[in-house]
């Protein structure tokens, strides 16, 4: 474990807590893409099933359980408890355009042609693009509540921090994970436009608004 990865994981944890806080306090999931949240459930289940046969550490297992549990809970909140506040008519990104290419890529690029490793690759590719329905929705509505932007910022910072972690591991441990690095760079890249508006507007106390 190094500081970059620890801070990255904590940022990921924080993002989910911020999202839960937003939903619970406003009693609404307005502005949140159900499709993105459903994709995260698929990502976590596909990747963290190794929970059942591979023990790394208590930290590792606890985080995996938390990510699977909290993402399913968020889906439940959106689909049942706060269903009237969820507006599917603005959540229109076609997720098959993400699922199919990710499935094909995971069959080509994996570290071992076996179901668990293919699922792992699939989850890495899918995670890198899972935010697109959410960003697409933001683009359509043109604005967002501050707390929603804090959620997105924490989520973006999480993968951004994994990049120095991989550089650090390359030099200290001599290992490189080309699949995760490539997908991680793509994933972080998708946030650049968002980060620009977030750091220049929201953190200066202005409203998150995209230019028309």
């Amino acid at each position: 474990m190094n500081l970059f990865r620890l801070l990255g994981d904590l940022s990921h944890l924080a993002s989910i807590l911020v999202l839960l806080h937003k939903i619970q306090t406003s009693r609404s999931c307005r502005g949140i893409s159900f499709k993105t949240q459903a994709l995260y459930v698929a990502v976590f289940v596909a990747r963290y099933l190794d929970l059942f046969w591979r023990y790394i550490s208590l930290y590792n297992s606890a985080m995996k359980v938390f990510f699977i549990g909290s993402s399913c809970y968020i889906l439940y909140l959106m689909k049942y408890r706060y269903r009237p506040t969820n507006d599917p008519s603005i959540d229109t990104f076609r997720i098959e355009y993400l699922l199919v290419p990710c499935a094909i890529l995971s069959l080509i690029f994996n570290y071992n042609f076996m179901p668990t490793e293919i699922l792992w690759s699939f989850s890495i590719f899918l995670e890198s693009v899972a935010i697109l329905p959410q960003l697409f929705m933001l683009q359509r509505t043109g604005e967002a509540e501050a707390i929603t932007t804090h959620y997105l910022a924490a989520l973006g910072i999480y993968r951004a921090l994994y990049i120095p972690n991989w550089i650090y591991r390359y030099f200290t441990e001599g290992v490189i994970d080309p699949i995760a690095v490539t997908a991680g760079i793509v994933q972080t890249g998708l946030y650049l436009d968002f980060f620009y508006v977030y750091f220049t507007k929201v953190l200066q106390g202005q409203k998150f608004e995209l230019p028309a």
């Binding site: 190794d50 290992v175 490189i176």
Partner: peptide, 10 residues
Amino acid sequence: VDAERPKDEL
């Protein structure tokens, strides 16, 4: 350098 995935990452 080995190309492999570190199994301890989340």
